[in-house]
Amino acid sequence: MSTASHVHLQRLEAESIRILRQVATDFERPVLLYSVGKDSSVLLHLAMKAFYPAKPPFPLLHVDTTWKFREMIAFRDATVKRLGLELIVHTNPEGLAANTNPFTHGSSRYTDIMKTEALRQALDAGKYDAAIGGARRDEEKSRAKERVFSHRTKHHVWDPKNQRPELWSLYNTRINPDESMRVFPLSNWTETDIWAYIYLQDIPMSQLYLAAERPVVERDGDLLMLDDDRFPLNPGEKPKMRSIRFRTLGCYPLTAAIESTASTLAEVILEMRSSHTSERSGRLIDNDQAASMEKKKKEGYF
């Protein structure tokens, strides 16, 4: 840490590094789920620290739904190149062939095919026994009960009623053949911690987190950005240029922006302090059915 006075962040950093090292030691084929967002950026930064001066002993995996913002893909490729890491990109081939998209298939089915199913395919194909993700316990209710080392059956199923107790820093990493573990080194970080750490450590970020004039349409109060010409406009709907930014990055038709003029990281953090909505409220997939995140997680979603 750049300054020794940041006790709280130092503790979080050390805890995450300890977890990442344990994954690398105890598993044969770990992989880091890199989703290009701010949490992934912090996770990747911590992985670089954990194994320094060596490189992280695992590849990165990005599940590309083909509906990510173009800027995210460019940022992803630049990051991997800058750090000299191995990146595996997977898209569900059947989903791609069927032209699965959030507009005609609905967000729930689309997420199931292009994210959850695609992730399972990629994990099976790589025979990965541990998948490291950037989820935090403060994000969402079912995440608040997730273990740091979260067991998955061979069908990637999470059983929230049968979780292993996790005491002290003694993580039980044992699995049977074909089973796997999801690992969440950022479990104890909050959104504020993430932004403060990004600021203090000067971690490169996608420009989408900063406000800029972008073409948007407004639907049911959500601001949706048009990233390319695949976005079907309703009759009479006309995109407008507005100053927007994103608090969370996902698939562009499913990620609502917020109106903002915060064009620097500092302004973003200050704006966040006075915010009155939680960050996942911009994720349209969370709201499409009751207890939807828990359901998705049981099925293998991150």
Binding site: K141, S142, A144, K145, K161, A290, A291
Partner: peptide
């Protein structure tokens, strides 16, 4: 607020 899992609710 804190009873997160569907079964508990």
């Amino acid at each position: 607020l804190v009873d997160g899992l569907a079964a508990e609710r």
